[in-house]
Computed example of a mutant assay.
Amino acid sequence: MEDIRAMLQVTMRRFGMLNKNCCTVDCLDISMVQSHILYEIARKNLPSMQEVADTIGMDITTFSRQIQTLKKMELVERNQSAEDKRVYHLSLTAKGKQVEEGINDQMKHYLENVFSHLNEKEQNEVIKSLQILNAAMGKSNMCCKPFS
């Protein structure tokens, strides 16, 4: 059996998971964590801070610091819930939406380039394999949850 950990390590490095910054959009350097946060906020309608922190598997204290940074960058707004004063909802500013779209464009271009080196059958095999791996990770008690 091949060294699966080594293969995953190389994949993560090549995907840029260990880079300080994953993307630069409109002269803003965005970290991988910030990219994940922006993506999750964009996917949901006014998610709570706890909801996004849980989705990306981050403790709320660290997450709050990231939100403060994103607020200073004018990418995210945080508003107190009218129903429950302990809850804060997140949304992207117009600038935040523009940056998130820029990240999406960069990632799309990156993945299209990578997949261009595979034939259609290989592309489908990779996608199916990733679906199977993600499903297995979702069932494992060793992996972070929830990821939807």
Rank of each mutant, 00 (worst) to 15 (best):
M1S: 13
L8T: 12
Q9M: 14
Q9G: 02
R13H: 13
R14N: 10
F15I: 11
G16F: 05
G16N: 05
M17Q: 12
N19G: 12
C23Q: 09
V25A: 02
V25M: 02
D26K: 15
D26S: 13
C27A: 14
C27E: 14
C27V: 13
L28Q: 08
D29G: 08
D29Y: 12
M32Y: 14
Q34Y: 02
S35Y: 06
S35K: 09
H36M: 15
I37T: 02
Y39I: 11
I41G: 00
N45D: 10
P47A: 03
S48M: 00
S48F: 01
M49D: 09
D54G: 05
I56Q: 00
M58N: 08
D59P: 08
I60E: 06
T61S: 15
T62I: 10
T62Y: 11
R65G: 13
R65K: 12
R65P: 11
Q66D: 08
Q66C: 07
I67T: 06
L70F: 03
K72N: 11
M73K: 09
M73I: 09
M73R: 06
V76T: 00
R78W: 03
R78Q: 07
N79R: 02
Q80Y: 02
S81I: 01
S81M: 03
A82H: 10
K85C: 01
V87M: 03
Y88F: 04
S91D: 03
L92C: 01
K95R: 05
K95H: 07
G96D: 00
G96R: 02
K97D: 09
Q98W: 11
E101N: 12
G102T: 01
I103S: 04
N104A: 14
D105M: 09
D105P: 10
Q106M: 10
M107G: 07
K108F: 13
H109K: 15
E112F: 11
N113I: 10
V114H: 03
F115Y: 02
L118F: 07
L118R: 04
N119S: 00
E122C: 07
Q123Y: 01
Q123E: 04
E125Q: 10
I127T: 12
I127N: 07
L133W: 11
N134G: 13
A135L: 15
A135M: 15
A136I: 14
M137A: 14
C143S: 15
C144R: 15
K145L: 09
K145Y: 06
P146E: 08
F147G: 14
